[in-house]
Design a binder for these strands. Structure first.
Lengths: 133, 133
DNA sequence: GTGGGTGCAAATAATTTGCACGGTA
DNA sequence: TACCGTGCAAATTATTTGCACCCAC
């Protein structure tokens, strides 16, 4: 059932938490900022607070339910963690976000870190692209 | 001479601008935040204002003298644009920034964008690493 | 019932902007 | 001298925190 993921994270199953989680589950592969969630959840129903959204997003990120990203525009955005790692391209004209995964790229990064005497912990990679004319 | 780059950018050669540019030129390959510059320039000499630092950094970035980066810690950092593109690794334990360049990685990104029907305009890639024990 | 959770408003942090004064070309 | 540039303080934007009330367990 719905609240199980929340319970597994050691959190009480409350209305705001359910609303945030369902919001992401209904829109797989999409990315939202705290303010997106605040505006949309509030308009469609309850009197949820922006501070609560931020708190819930942080808790869900810590619990591994959501992934946080910082594209080049000041605001952080979140997406559902499906367990399948991928990177992002951002269309500079439309702002559209495209997810992709490339094994060769992943391996290359691990090798690069090793080449400098390090172990790869995480990486952040965004390609800014434009549609070919 | 020193002020030429500033003049070429269509800006007047003023003390704060010279101070910021010289600060970077004396520390090649290093990265600084607006607040780093503010604290260090102010302590060593003049009564430069933080707002001026931000204005000068934005102008220098627009002029191509500096490159702006957003690592995963809220603050933006800047480095001198030497014309030689490179990416960064951040040591998660020490915060140290390591610059690197890998042709294979660059080519792979171009190919990936193309594979999805796009042209690569720019990219942002940071590897978060840890020293191998 | 109790301790965690919530909304609201106030607090922070990073950055930007308005304004009167000051310095460069 | 004309205007751009500057320092300071106030304004913005994104996010966090304090607090009294509320609700899931």
């Amino acid at each position: 059932m719905k609240g199980q993921d929340i319970k597994n994270a050691g959190l009480k199953v409350t209305l705001p938490r359910l609303q945030v989680l369902e919001f992401f589950e209904k829109r797989p592969g999409e990315h939202f900022s705290a303010d997106d969630l605040f505006t949309q959840i509030r308009s469609s129903s309850s009197d949820i607070g922006l501070a609560t959204i931020y708190r819930v997003l942080n808790q869900f990120e810590a619990a591994g339910l959501l992934i946080k990203h910082q594209f080049d525009n000041g605001q952080s955005v979140y997406e559902l963690d499906t367990g399948e790692h991928h990177d992002h391209m951002v269309d500079v004209d439309t702002g559209q976000v495209i997810e992709f995964f490339d094994k060769e790229l992943e391996d290359l990064q691990i090798q690069l870190a090793k080449k400098y005497g390090y172990k790869l912990i995480d990486h952040n990679m965004v390609l800014y692209v434009q549609k070919e004319k």
